[in-house]
Nucleic acid binder design. Structure first.
Length: 352
DNA sequence: AACACGGGGTT
DNA sequence: AACCCAGTGTT
């Protein structure tokens, strides 16, 4: 058996050729200094190049060496980081710099296994630094790579599952050449960032369009697949429970096009965010003005508070035209609205 | 495995 | 508004 060496996957070859002419000129790409590469990678975690760029330049100027960074007061570092978000990155940055000085004599490590020990350096960042700085054959898998690979191979496995993580890492390694690992990784991510974009990708300028299964099957816009749909948008429902002297309660039927289609509910005021006491009274007054009721008393009394994860229920009492009225507020996570037992809420207050 | 962390751009 | 960004650490 002959071991093939220095082989390059055709897709990698195309990406490398494209990258050579199309790559953006970014300051951290002009250096093989692991310290500068690390600095740029930490700053660019979950951060766009345009947003991170001025911060990178500031840090390089303020702290030209890892010793400078390690010796700096943490407050100075946090001050430089101000406005960038994810501030634990700044604290980890400082801790890692000190570790490099004490454990590595100030010489920034370039091996994946050593880089991984630094605070704030995970699998992606360790692979990036090791491959960019010394071409260690570690495949990076960031958001760009997930997107590019999921489209190239038209993969339906969700990227945010254990199975997905393993699969995409394996595919990334299949494409990784034994030489030029750093350039290949950067080419892959650069293509994802400026061509194979999440929305409206510019497939006409894609260097590997001939290999793209998702393009072939017209599923580009459905890749990658994610399983976590945990988006929790709160909706606040303020129910006015209006009774007459015979204890009849005003209700109406919901219409189509939203949750709880066809179900009956109390008089509703909906708002995207919670009202404070004053805003609530104004909203109630407006609501009542649009009907035939008049608000007589302008004070409310909290009666009951319920909490369940993202779900809060607050009940108040006020008076409308001398009739008692109960106000309920319900914040419902968007991914639970279809199962939230509104009917039982109504039953409870009608005592039926 | 789920969640927190964050400001900002794009559609 | 939803989604995403050169992800990591904690529970």
């Amino acid at each position: 058996m002959i071991k093939t060496q220095n082989t390059i996957h055709p897709i990698s070859a195309l990406l490398l050729r494209w990258y050579a002419t199309q790559k953006r000129d970014l300051p951290w790409r002009n250096s093989s200094n692991a310290y500068y590469i690390w600095l740029s990678e930490i700053i660019l975690q979950q951060t766009r190049v345009a947003q991170g760029m001025p911060y990178y330049l500031n840090f390089v100027q303020a702290y030209p060496t890892v010793q400078d960074l390690a010796n700096a007061p943490e407050q100075d570092i946090l001050k430089l980081w101000q406005g960038l978000g994810y501030y634990s990155r700044a604290r980890n940055l400082h801790a890692a710099a000190k570790m490099v000085v004490t454990d590595y004599s100030g010489i920034f490590p370039t091996q994946y296994s050593e880089l991984k020990k630094l605070k704030g350096v995970g699998e992606y960042t360790a692979s990036a630094i090791a491959s960019f700085a010394v071409n260690e054959p570690k495949a990076v898998v960031d958001g760009n790579v997930y997107r590019v690979l999921s489209r190239l191979y038209n993969i339906e496995t969700p990227i945010d599952t254990n199975e997905g993580v393993k699969l995409f890492s394996q595919l990334a390694y299949e494409l990784l050449p034994t030489v030029h690992a750093g350039e290949h990784n950067q080419a892959m991510m650069e293509m994802g960032a400026i061509c194979c974009k999440p929305k409206l990708p510019t497939c006409v300028q894609c260097p590997v369009i001939d290999y793209c299964e998702a393009y072939k099957h017209n599923t580009i816009n459905e890749r990658p697949i994610k399983s976590k749909r945990t988006k929790v948008t709160a909706r606040y429902f303020y129910y006015l429970i209006i009774n007459d002297k015979k204890q009849h309660t005003l209700i109406h039927q919901r219409t189509a096009g939203d949750i709880w289609q066809g179900l009956y509910e109390f008089v509703l005021i909906e708002n995207a965010i919670a009202f404070d006491e004053k805003e609530l009274l104004v909203a109630i007054q407006e609501k009542l003005n649009s009907t035939k009721f008049k608000l007589k008393q302008t004070s409310t009394t909290h009666k009951h508070v319920l909490s369940h994860q993202h779900l809060h229920t607050i009940f108040c009492e006020i008076e409308v035209a001398k009739l008692p009225i109960i106000i309920g507020t319900v914040a419902i996570p968007y991914n639970q609205v279809n199962t939230y037992p509104l009917p039982r809420l109504i039953d409870k207050y009608l005592n039926i």
